[in-house]
Nucleic acid binder design. Structure first.
Lengths: 155, 155
DNA sequence: AAAATATAGTTTCATATGTAACTAATTTGA
DNA sequence: TCAAATTAGTTACATATGAAACTATATTTT
């Protein structure tokens, strides 16, 4: 069968990977504006900050695992946060290669400012869905995540 | 209330923008391997190819609208595809600023090789979901897209 | 207890990407 | 009808990113 547009059979606008990517980027960009414009943080710095707030003393490697960032990205985000005075590196007593990372007082301060903004933007987004739909979406995403990355947990 | 990890109230792993981003990247990367490793195409080049196959004679600007790529990205992807011999630029008769873009024979050839691979990978992914769940996912994503970008259609 | 191997994290270098400035053609509107 | 504004697309520049090499420490193997 010769190729014609009619039998292309792949319309980008119905192709799941494309739709997911565009949707995800639209949402991420919207949220990224919150902490970029207001606080000068990159999305990576924000992620590092979030997991460090959640687990004070965490190592760079652990941060990478929880945020799905590679170690170079973590290293750079951490360096930036330290330079901005939001993060502190404490040498680990039991392993001199690691550091224990903690937010500084200033870091906690802006973290606490960002959290409600981020959560309310998330709430605004998902308010387009009913509670049941939100739960369903989470469930479907988890199933997809399993299919997309059987080898490792995504979240 | 002083800050403690307990009242952080934002766990990245349950934060929708983060989950979507990680899921989308995992899926995109998996698919990107198909056309990168086998055919040396970037994700942007693949998108340009897909919409051009679907709409021969399309302009760069239209490609940008359909793929959500900015004009610089389109320009670069087009330049790459032309250099590889997969795309041809035809001057538009009615507007000398535009070109009409079409896949070359070689371009159609590899496009037709990629489509079934991409579709079968998509099928593999969504086979984790029932038909009903697939439909539901599409519906929920469309709702989210509306909330995330009320000003423009994402797909 | 060395020597070999592995791990934590950083630096380097090459490439990708986004913003702004630019060129050329077209449209608007006084 | 011609000057101003818009649009299509490219180029230049500055920044972001990823892969590989590297440093320093820890662990494993013999």
């Amino acid at each position: 069968m010769p190729y014609t547009p009619e039998n292309a059979a792949l319309r980008l606008s119905t192709f799941l990977p494309f739709r997911l990517s565009v949707l995800s980027n639209a949402i991420s960009q919207r949220i990224a504006e919150l902490y970029d414009r207001e606080f000068g943080l990159s999305i990576w710095q924000w992620r590092v900050m979030a997991v460090t707030a959640d687990s004070p003393g965490i190592s760079a490697t652990e941060i990478g695992q929880r945020t799905q960032m590679d170690k170079v990205a973590v290293s750079r985000a951490v360096a930036g946060l330290i330079e901005m005075g939001y993060l502190e590196r404490r040498p680990s007593t039991d392993d001199a290669r690691r550091s224990n990372l903690v937010l500084t007082k200033a870091g906690m301060g802006i973290y606490e400012l960002i959290v409600p903004l981020a959560l309310s933007e998330e709430a605004r987004l998902v308010s387009a869905l009913s509670d049941k739909e939100q739960a369903e979406l989470g469930r479907l995403m988890a199933k997809l995540a399993g299919a997309a990355s059987p080898e490792r947990d995504l979240w």
